[in-house]
């Protein structure tokens, strides 16, 4: 039994996947005859030990027409960390080519599973846009003209999936005139006001603390919290604890929660005392 081994350049290599998938589908290669890998790493957990590449498939195979929403779906699913993503997508592609209406059918198990991967990626991208926290770092100027030092904004973030490069466009559009870097364990992106550069993974220590604005932000976070409405479950569903270590304000949460009830009771007690002074007053029409 022979397999085609497809070697992709990077974990988020959508173009590589698309080119290979197009050629494979054009040659009628079934999904269980393809092994996908990133670089030299086997990407598919179920890869058989006998990987004998067959003759290269012709890249000029027939033009394939797939619905546009399939391409959109595939672009995001490729960013998922699930090692099976490439083969799931290829299996879905073969079925969509056969029956384009499958893209409309949310009840199909494979279609649902792939959609689930896409949802996880989109959520991860959204949370990165929400929870990246820049720190301002003033760079010493060149050759002693320290006054000319350009400040740079640096953030450390740990995404669940391979979203950093794809998400860069959002940050470029938003912080176009700033100089910034977003560092993650797998990759880094740097913007200098005109060009986006990519770099290798970094560590948390590379985004040094010490930005005085963090204290002002924490003052805001404390003050905007209403202790009479404590509802940690709602907070945790949108801001799970896995994000807390990189959010400066999250350090305040335990104390805000612990003192909330006492603060509320204190307000009620004072009101009661005040009403005692004013005589009883009832609200009504």
């Amino acid at each position: 039994m022979t397999h085609h081994v497809i070697r992709l350049d990077a974990p988020d290599d959508f173009d590589g996947w698309r080119d290979a998938a197009r050629a494979l589908a054009g040659s009628g290669v079934p999904a269980d005859r393809v092994l996908w890998q990133v670089g030299d790493q086997p990407a598919d957990l179920f890869a058989t030990p006998h990987r004998a590449p067959v003759a290269p498939i012709s890249p000029s195979a027939a033009r394939l027409n797939v619905p546009r929403d399939f391409i959109q779906l595939a672009r995001s699913v490729v960013l998922h960390r699930d090692p099976e993503r490439f083969s799931l997508l290829y299996a879905l592609l073969l079925r969509v080519l056969h029956r384009p209406a499958l893209m409309q059918d949310a009840t199909d198990p494979l279609r649902r599973r792939v959609e689930g991967l896409s949802q996880a990626v989109r959520r991860d991208m959204h949370k990165m846009r929400a929870f990246v926290r820049f720190r301002e770092i003033t760079m010493p100027g060149q050759d002693g003209d320290a006054a000319e030092g350009q400040s740079r904004f640096v953030a450390w973030f740990e995404p669940d999936h391979h979203i950093t490069r794809t998400n860069a466009a959002f940050f470029v559009g938003r912080f176009a005139t700033m100089h910034w870097s977003i560092l993650t364990p797998d990759a880094a992106i740097h913007w200098d006001g005109t060009t986006l550069r990519q770099g290798p993974g970094a560590s948390a220590a590379d985004a040094a603390p010490g930005d005085p604005l963090e204290e002002v932000w924490k003052a805001y976070y404390s003050a905007i919290f209403n202790p009479a409405r404590l509802n940690p479950r709602a907070m945790l569903s949108e801001m799970p604890m896995k994000y807390w270590k990189n959010l400066p304000e999250a350090a305040l949460i335990p104390d805000l929660m612990a003192t909330a009830r006492a603060r509320e009771l204190d307000m009620i007690e004072r009101s009661r005392a005040a009403q005692g002074r004013h005589g009883t007053a009832k609200v009504g029409r």
Partner: peptide, 18 residues
């Protein structure tokens, strides 16, 4: 600086009141 991405907007943090 600044952008609007369209759609739902972004919540950058959640207070313990949810």
């Amino acid at each position: 600086i600044g952008s609007i991405t369209g759609g739902g907007g972004i919540c950058h943090a959640y207070a313990p009141d949810g």
